[in-house]
Structure formats: C-alpha cells, structure tokens
Amino acid sequence: MFGCQQNLIRADSEIKAIIEYLCSESAKLSNCGTYYARQLYFKSGKIPNRAQLHKVLGTENRNLHYQAFYSDTAQQILTGVAESFKSFLGLLKAFKNGVIIDPAKCLTIDHGLDNWLTCVSNIGTSFIVDGRHLKSLNQGYNKRVAFLMKGKANGYWSKRLASLTEKRNRQMRDAVNKAAIKVIHHCLKNQIGTVVFGWNKGQKNSANMGSKTNQKFVQIPTGRLKDRIAQLCEQYGLRFVETEESYSSKASFVDNDLLPTFGEKPECDSFSRNLVIGG
C-alpha cells in the first residue's frame, strides 16, 4: 500500500521541470539518509539523530542532493528520516516488552450527523468526532451554489462553480483524513487491535428523513471515511470489521443477541429485551 499527498498547482513547462527535479532530489536525499542510518544501526546498534544526519550529509560529506535545497529544506527532509528510525526502535522496544496490539481489545464506531463518529471501546475508553463543522461547510456550499445558479438553465456550469466545488471537495477530503487518523491513533495508544464499524449498505440511497436532513446526511462523506479507516487499519496491522447495524437498538449485547441483516429473515423471532426509551 502506498500513501500520497495531493498538491494542486498551476505550472508551465519550466516550473514543472523544476518541481520534478526537486521531488527527485528529495527522494534521493531521503535514500542517502536512510542508508547511512541503517548502516550505523547494523554496526553499532545506534541510530543517528537529526542533528547528526544534518552534520554528516550536509557539512562533512557535502552531499550533492543535500546541496540541491536550501539548508532548512534539506534538514527537514533528513528530520523525517531520523523520526522514522526513532519510531522503528520504539516499535522494537514495545514488541520485546510485550506491549503489542491486542485483537481482543475492540473499538466500536457508530456514525451520525452532529456526532459524526461516536467511538466506544471494551476497555473503557471513548471519544466523539464532531460533525457540526462539516455540516456548516456543506450548508455554506449549498447556499453559494444556489445563489450562483439562480435563474440559470438546467446543466449550467462555470469556472466559479467548479472552483467552489473543488474547494468543498478538498475540505471534505481533509476532514475524512483527520477523523480517520484520530481513530487509528486512539487504537495504537491503547493497544486496541480491532475496529468495528456499524454500516448498512445503500442506506444513503434509501434515506427518508425529510429533504433538509436528507441533504445533510447524503452530503457527509461517511462512506469515504469508513473506507479510509479500513485502509489505515490494514496499514497499521489492525483488524477492521464492518457490521450490520439495522437492529443494533433492539439487540442486546449482554444477552448475546444475534444481529440479523435488514431485509432478510432473522434466525430468531424476537430479541431478549424490549427497547426502553429514556427521559
């Protein structure tokens, strides 16, 4: 699995050539730093810190790839190498001490609107990812689009609308990535090895909560968030489980009730307990 960072730029052929050159030099400098750190670790069992990498490749060896950048930029590239090796040693130490991810520890996730994700684990931890800011962004986008398309024919589109939509899509993508990494960091911090995400396939297509609520619900990219969490779970060695949630309000976890799939005939005709409405 490969990760990438998207950068939107407008560049002519000359600027594009410069950017490609700098990207190539950055990768080569990272490789040089990785090779030096690895060889030092093999020979002495130690890893260089960022100051040592800067000194060896920048001052002593005057590495050609280092000299392709301003010093602060080159130092930042090598700092990333040093942090990667520090993380590697931390994982080795945790493994030797028996501090590893436990698949029996589980984080369950329920999604919504105001509370985009409500996360509760079986070891007593919990947190909420707020969804109100995302709703506000979508409302602003919808109002702006409605204003720009007022009085226009069906199918009307413009550069302004395209720019507005691209900005909104970037904001959604940013929110998805931040929410997903928050879930993963919580799991790693608490040695949680399993993530369970409640999801009903096609639920947005059949949503019937009124036109305004429907619009808010459908425009929130929860499906993309679920897929992103699944990708990160695979990357970090966690188990991801997607489960039916149509009857989660009726079924009792304490009584080991089964969760039937919506639309299919359940194996049992009734659940152990009646739903009690509080308040």
Rank of each mutant, 00 (worst) to 15 (best):
A94W: 05
V81M: 02
S84D: 08
L107P: 04
S84T: 09
T79K: 14
A94T: 10
F95I: 11
D102Q: 08
V99N: 15
K86Q: 11
N97P: 04
F88A: 01
S87G: 01
A94N: 13
S87I: 08
F85Y: 13
K93Y: 07
G98S: 08
A82K: 06
K86T: 14
G90Q: 03
F95L: 13
P103A: 07
G80N: 06
L92Q: 07
K105I: 10
F85M: 10
A82Y: 08
D102F: 07
G90E: 05
G90P: 02
I101R: 00
L78C: 08
G98A: 05
S87D: 08
L91E: 13
K105N: 13
G80A: 07
K86F: 06
D102R: 03
C106V: 15
L78K: 03
S84R: 10
S87A: 11
S84M: 03
K105S: 07
S87H: 08
A94G: 08
F88M: 09
K93D: 13
C106Y: 11
G98I: 04
K105Q: 12
E83I: 14
A82L: 10
E83H: 12
F88T: 03
L89M: 07
D102S: 06
F95G: 04
I101E: 05
G98Q: 02
A104G: 04
D102P: 07
S84V: 06
A94C: 10
V99H: 14
P103Q: 10
A94D: 14
V81Y: 00
G80H: 00
L107Q: 06
E83G: 02
G80Q: 02
G80S: 05
L107S: 11
A82T: 05
E83V: 15
I100S: 12
N97T: 09
L107F: 13
A104L: 11
F85E: 03
T79Y: 12
V99G: 04
G90N: 07
N97H: 12
S84C: 05
L91P: 00
K96F: 09
T79C: 12
I100P: 01
T79A: 13
K86P: 01
G98T: 04
S84A: 13
L107V: 15
L92T: 03
A104K: 12
F88D: 00
L91S: 07
V81E: 00
